[in-house]
Simulated scan of single mutants.
Amino acid sequence: MKTLQRRQLVGHDILLARHGNHICSMRVDRSNGRVVALLDDGTVDSAPNVIAPGLELPATVGSVMREDWKILTACGAVAAGMGALMVTAAVALGTMADPTAVEMLSAYAIY
C-alpha cells in the first residue's frame, strides 16, 4: 500500500557525505532534479536528486494533485451540483407541498 509521504532528497545526503560541515546552504533545483549546495569557501557543488532514473517513488499529496486535478475537479463539481439540487428539492418540497404530504413523507419509515 502506497502512503502519501514526503519524498526524501537523496542529493542532501550525497552533499553532506562529500562536504560535511563546510556547507553554508542548500537549495533544491527541481527543474534539473538536483540539490545545489553553497560551500563556505564560496564554491558551489550539486548532486542528483534521484537514486535510479526508473525508480518509482511513493506518491505525495502534491504529486497526486498534479496528476489527477481534472478528475478531482470534475468529482467536486458533480458533488456540488448534486448538493445544490438536493437543497433546492428540499426547499421546494417544504414550501410548495401540502402539509399532509409533508407529514406522510416525514412519518414514513425507510427500511
Rank of each mutant, 00 (worst) to 15 (best):
V102E: 02
S63C: 01
L38N: 10
T73D: 12
I51L: 14
A109C: 04
G42R: 03
L16Q: 11
A74V: 10
A74I: 08
G81K: 01
R18H: 08
Q8K: 06
A77R: 12
M104F: 10
V36Q: 03
T100P: 00
D40V: 05
G11W: 00
E56L: 14
G94K: 00
V64Q: 08
M96E: 09
D29T: 02
I71Q: 14
M96S: 12
T60K: 03
I110C: 07
L9V: 06
V91Q: 01
A84T: 10
C24G: 00
V10T: 12
G20L: 01
A107D: 12
A101S: 13
T60P: 04
D29W: 02
V50W: 13
V64M: 14
G42C: 04
D29H: 05
V61W: 06
A37K: 01
G33T: 06
V10W: 12
G33H: 06
M104T: 11
L72D: 01
K2W: 10
I14M: 08
P48V: 13
A77F: 05
N49T: 04
V78F: 07
G42L: 03
V102S: 09
A89H: 07
V35L: 03
H19C: 02
V35N: 02
K70E: 15
M86F: 11
W69E: 10
L93R: 07
L57F: 05
V61D: 12
I71T: 15
S106N: 12
R30F: 11
R7M: 05
I14H: 01
A59C: 04
E67K: 15
L4H: 06
P58C: 04
E103H: 10
P48I: 11
T100E: 14
S31M: 08
S25M: 04
A109P: 04
